[in-house]
Structure formats: structure tokens, C-alpha cells
Design a protein around this nucleic acid. Sequence first.
DNA 1: GTGCATCTTTGCATACCATGCAACTTATGA
DNA 2: TCATAAGTTGCATGGTATGCAAAGATGCAC
Lengths: 207, 207
Amino acid sequence: MQLMREKGAAGGGLRERKKRATRAALAEAAVRLAAEHGAEKVTVEAISAAAGVSVRTFFNYFDTRDDAFVVIDADAGARMRRAVLDAPAGLSPLEVLRGALAAELAEAEQQHELWRLHAEVLHASPHLLARGVGAHMAAEAELAEAIAERLGDAGGGIYPRLLAAVAGTAVRTSVDHWSAHQEEAAFLDVFHEVFSLLAAGLPAPPA
Amino acid sequence: MQLMREKGAAGGGLRERKKRATRAALAEAAVRLAAEHGAEKVTVEAISAAAGVSVRTFFNYFDTRDDAFVVIDADAGARMRRAVLDAPAGLSPLEVLRGALAAELAEAEQQHELWRLHAEVLHASPHLLARGVGAHMAAEAELAEAIAERLGDAGGGIYPRLLAAVAGTAVRTSVDHWSAHQEEAAFLDVFHEVFSLLAAGLPAPPA
DNA sequence: GTGCATCTTTGCATACCATGCAACTTATGA
DNA sequence: TCATAAGTTGCATGGTATGCAAAGATGCAC
């Protein structure tokens, strides 16, 4: 019952640290139990017991049982926003996103082991995969805003939202492909290949 | 207790027609009730009552309460598959998808009224929107297969899945944008604009 | 149209998910 | 140390979801 990368806001009082620890313990217990028994077989009671809290407390941390499998990094949106706004002026919006996402993902990949387990669990039940998408959509909306802001008057139409949505899709597709062909390629290589395809307008591959 | 466009496989015996009718009645009741009272306030009992069946029967048609709001056209995947495989050989994969999706959506748009209501309900609770994405993912997988098949040996990598996923994203983004700016543009115009952006590699819009 | 096989619907029992509320315990800061 | 704010817990309640067996339709052969 520990772990914690203390990513965004570190430290704080004992209270906050305990909250973080409890949340992390619940999330980790959920993923490990799901990896072992299958997500559908894992009850809230089991997760709570494994994390050493009551069922009622589980629901103080997650609105839904499934939320425990889907880990949302609430600070990611804000970080990406800054990355988009601070990027060099010369870059195209797509290049800006490629950079911001690559940086974010490189960091996430350090938690390699738990990340893999995660991907495994989500992949095993499409139901949860969809929920993961939902979790990303809030971040995508924030991304779209940042892009629109960066573009100024030119960002009034559908372009920012499309770009953010496509970028999110690119990430998910990359993760999906990588987790199915883990031995063949490094994740970031897959990711960059995907963005190259997007930048080229998704041309037909050579026969 | 009527309606039905008898899209894919029409007719059949009385049994099948009744099943279709029941399913449609449940789905329509769900959407109308949700539009009126908010999706979260609509119980399975209310939906079932409105459709004139028992609660137990509801669960014979939908695995989940939310599924009733998300309407899945189970035949759409098969239709698109054929459209992709039957398209002229000269077209690029992206153009093929643009055509297949446009045809499918043009047909769907004829149910204009219910479709709008649908978009409204989904948009009101992001939770359901995510579920809608999940519903589309199965279709996307089928699309990816069709694309891979069309491409032959060239379709072995990540390209088909990426293309299918991006196309799905394009549709969702178009619907989203259109439903927010309904008065300003026809849906298919939005849709084609989006595909043009994709084909051009998502270039920065003119300042 | 009779009768049998098959499919559908339904009620009942059961288990899990999710929320509000009040009582209790623990951290925080003066 | 003490008062306050925050977090945890059990209990009560109601909605969601599944298995099972009985009853009701439908389809088909005769």
C-alpha cells in the first residue's frame, strides 16, 4: 500500500498524503485484481478489502466501480495546455501536439510495469477501453482550447477540436498497436510513425 | 410501438418483426424520456413501461441501461465492409472511407428528428458520449479489417487501424460540431470539410 | 387446424452498484 | 489542549443486472 509518483502537486499535509495513498492503493488494487481474475469478476468489496478501506470509502474516491480501472491524471490537461502555448511559434499545430504528447507519454512510460498491466486490463474488456476514451475526452477538450488560443482568430472553426480529437485517437491507436506488438517496436517509434502518417494526409501505403 | 426503417435485413417472419419493433420501441422510449427528464433520471422500469414490456425483457435486449441510449446499428459494419471492398480501385483509402461514410450518414440523416434528439441526449451527458464511442469501436475494427483486405499485403501494419480510428473520430467530431452549430451548416458539408483537412495532413488554418 | 418444437416473455430470487445520512475518528491550527 | 474541519464508516435505500423455470407466442409439418 504505497507507491505514488507524486507527479503534479507533491507533499502537502499528512491529510493529503493519506488521501493520495488511499486513492493509489485503491487504483492499484483494482488493476492487479483485474489482471488476475478479469475485470468483471472484481467486486468493489474485494478492491476495498485489498486496499484496507470500507466499501463506502471506495465510493468517496470513485464515482463508479469502473473508474478505478481507468486512472485519470487530472493534471495532464494543464501540463499539455502549457506545453502547447509555450511551443516555438514556427511549428505547425500538429507538430506542436506531437511534441507535447511525446513528452507526456515518455514520462508515463517510466511507470512501464503498471502501465502494461493497465493496457492489458483495458484491452481485455472493451467496455473499459471505451471508458478510458471518455476519460481522455475531457483532456481533449482542454487541448482543443489551448490550440484555439494558440491560433488566435484562425482557431474559430472546427479545426482545433478535430486536431485534438485526432491526436487523442492517434495516441490510443499507438498504444493499442504497441501493446499487441510489444516485442517488435518501441512505443515512441510507433507513436512517431502514426504522426508522420497524419501529417502526410494518411496516404495509401506502398504496395 | 411502431416506427422502423427496416434498413438491413427487411421483413422475415412475424417473430423477427416483433423483435425489431420491441427493440425500437425500447430505444425510442429511452431517448424520448431522456430528452425530457435527463438521462440520469430515467429508470429501466420507466423505459420498459413506456415500451409496454417488463423490466426483465428490457435486459433481454440490452446488456446495460445505457445501451438503450446508444443505439447500435449492428448491420452498419457489414454494409461499410462491402462499400469499402466494392469501391473503385483508383481511389485512395481515405477517399474510399469518405465515400462509404458519407453514404451511410446520408441515409441516417433521414431519421433527422430522432437523430437530433439522440445527439442532444448524448451531448447532455458525456458519460453516454463515451459509451457511444465504445459502440463505434466495434464497427471501426470491422472497417480496419476491410481496409486491410482491400490493401492486400500493404495493409499489414498499423495503417488500417489508424485509418479506421481516425475516420470514426472524424465522424464524431463532425456530429459534435454540427449539433452545436446546427443552423450554420449542413451536416454533410461539415463532414466533407473534416475529411479535406485530414487528406491535407491537418495543416494550420490561414491566419 | 392440430400438435409439437422453438423462441420470447415474464416473475421471482439474488447479488452487486451507488448515494444520502448520521455517528465516529483523525488531522490541523490557534 | 481544544475547537473545527475533513475523512471514514455502517446502515438504509433504491436502481442495475443475471440465472432460472413457468407460461405464452410463433413457426412448421402434417
